[in-house]
Amino acid sequence: MSNDSPSGPRSPRNAPASDRDRPPGEHDVKGLAFHDEEEEPSPPPAGRPRRFTWRKLVVVPAALAVVLVITYVWITNVELDSIAENSLAGDTVQLRWWQHVRLTAISTFWVLIIAIPLGIALTRRGLSKAAPVVTAIANIGQATPAIGLLALLVIWLGIGPSTAITGMVIYAVLPVLSNTVAGLKAIEPTLVEASRGIGMSAMGTLRKVELPLAVPLILAGVRTALVLNVGTATLATFGGGGGLGDLITSGIQTQRMPVLVLGSVLTVVLALLVDWLASLVEVALTPRGLEVGQ
């Protein structure tokens, strides 16, 4: 890099005349050749590790595609009786898949909208006293079974997708919130002080220093929320929310193994796919300076 910059001290153009006949990095002092030692190890920008390796990009989707093809071949060849056929009739399967995706996406959206600003607020000076209370609530919340929470909400709010989404949001807010708080708290206080010292406002410090530094932990929280939500969305069926859980429960209730297996396989594929996508986003959004060297 430094070779292209015109002001670079060792670029051939402004080097002493005698240096121009020498290879780069070598100097002529009174007829003797001297090497620049510090120039030798090549600087990192050229050899920056690639963010997306082939393995990261290909292995998971390929494996999932194989599983889907095998399942498709099996389900089209297996003998289905009328009950099983009814459970899979028309585009039920697609419908359930998209319901599941929608439940996951909507609940994750709300989780982020609620948890990240709340996490930021809890680390500001005014509200930091409330943080231990929130942590205590979060710990008890983690001990609450998702299915129990969902069942209580169904009794309270009635049946339907919005009840399921409410339950999923409540359940996933806690991990994202605690990750955000932990990420912001882990920042070296001297960095915040330094940025205040050079005249940045509190808002500017948050936006330019604190949030970028907390990005890895926040993203880890987002990934956790996504994976949790794909899982909790299977329980939406108990609250009339649809989703792939419908296939699983109707398979168990009617004792039709093809329906059960198809529902389970699709749920597994969706969960792994979402986790894989989230891992790619995680890699792409982490600030370059915070990447851990391989």
Partner: peptide, 17 residues
């Protein structure tokens, strides 16, 4: 970690057969 990503209801569903 892959096992943990799988929703538990789906894991139970795959084990029942």
């Amino acid at each position: 970690a892959t096992v943990l990503t799988i929703p538990s209801l789906a894991a139970i569903g795959l084990l029942i057969p």
